[in-house]
Design a protein around this nucleic acid. Structure first.
Lengths: 215, 215
DNA sequence: AAGATTTAGTTAGAGGCTATCACGAACCTT
DNA sequence: AAGGTTCGTGATAGCCTCTAACTAAATCTT
């Protein structure tokens, strides 16, 4: 395995440079936001001239797409790791919030303002489906004491997104609520909308989570 | 009044050009997103050379800030108009969603990804407070049958953001839930995250709203 | 080991953008 | 009609993305 994984020196150098480029890209993203991310700037930080980066990323768009992919991957892996250690929905929620706080711009790269024309490559939507599966599993573990709503009936007929997951409609609905509500509090916190308001965002998050788990 | 409002012809021309610039800016925003908004492009659309626009807006940032201000203003006015015609929380929620769907990028200009360093001018935060006041009024009209939570106690001590509004903590909490939950569903819909999922976003929104009003 | 080939990095440059400046032209005031 | 103010222009600096041609180095082949 140590032999199979070790490619030619050139390939190793290449992947290492690509990694270093991404490292600087994440720094720029965190400090200046995605719209100000500059290949030229990264090149200068790495001590080489602008066009050199185009050996590693065909375009600025391709680099950003890879950042998006890595963000989805990181989120899916983080939640999966928590889930395999027996985390329930509550722990999963706090794992999500911690992941978001770790790098708000990374969260917003996924869930923030999209570029109107942009369509993510299919492999990224697959990672997104992984995350959804983790969420559905966790929701299945909870008792479904709530009664069936009209929306449940709609979901029973429109469950393609569950991708074969055997969860009943009530569980699908709980998963959607979980997703949308936590995103609601978390995204507003990460975007700074609670900044001057005085209360503790962590407590609001916990309160929303409590109410989510109580029903 | 018709005389007081009519300034000098030059001033009228000036405000009219500024309005035309903004009109094109909104179009660009809707089609290409805020990051691709270009003063140069707007100038060409208007049949004049690039630097001419700097007579009307000192910088690209200033134009965007004005778009942000107008977006906040439009949202506040839209909700206020609904509220004065006796709209309850449910109607207010659908008014919010309709406003968002009318121009998703306008909604995301307020609630989407912020640029890290940016701090909105104070008059914008005041408009935001207006919106919050409308929300608090509407929440006050509802019966507060829910019991006091630990978070209520925290809110009782951190209610600066309510800006003198006499609503009790339970109402504050309901207003926050209203805001964060509706933003959760709506922002995900506007950002296109429900796109390939099959279900009807309107029904999910309505379901979330129902649950919000039921407790 | 020597030559052939692939690859990394360079500079130059086209075309876009924001933004400043100096200049002429239009306009309103007096 | 003379004055100052304002508008729009072209020129320019300094960013940016991205392409192209070229050099130098590392790797592969024989």
């Amino acid at each position: 395995m140590a032999e199979a994984g070790t490619k030619t020196p050139r390939e190793r150098y290449r992947t290492q440079v690509r990694a270093e480029i991404k490292k600087h890209a994440w720094e720029q993203l965190a400090t200046t936001g995605a719209s100000a991310l500059s290949l030229n700037g990264i090149a200068k930080q790495m001590g080489m001239s602008g066009p050199a980066l185009y050996r590693y990323y065909a375009s600025r768009d391709e680099l950003i797409t890879e950042l998006v992919r890595d963000a989805y991957r990181s989120l899916a892996d983080t939640l999966a790791a928590a889930a395999t250690t027996g985390a329930d929905l509550g722990v999963l929620a706090h794992t999500l919030r911690a992941w978001g706080l770790e790098d708000p711009q990374r969260y917003l790269l996924i869930y923030g303002t999209p570029v109107p024309g942009y369509q993510a490559p299919e492999d990224i939507t697959l990672i997104s489906a992984e995350t959804m599966a983790i969420l559905l599993d966790a929701c299945s573990a909870l008792p479904t004491d709530s009664s069936a709503t009209p929306f449940d009936a709609h979901l029973a007929d429109h469950r393609d997104w569950a991708d074969g997951h055997p969860a009943p409609p009530a569980v699908l609905r709980r998963a959607l609520s979980f997703w949308t509500r936590l995103h609601g509090v978390l995204s507003l916190e990460l975007a700074g909308h609670f900044a001057g308001m005085g209360f503790d965002p962590a407590l609001l998050f916990a309160a929303e989570l409590d109410e989510l788990l109580a029903h």
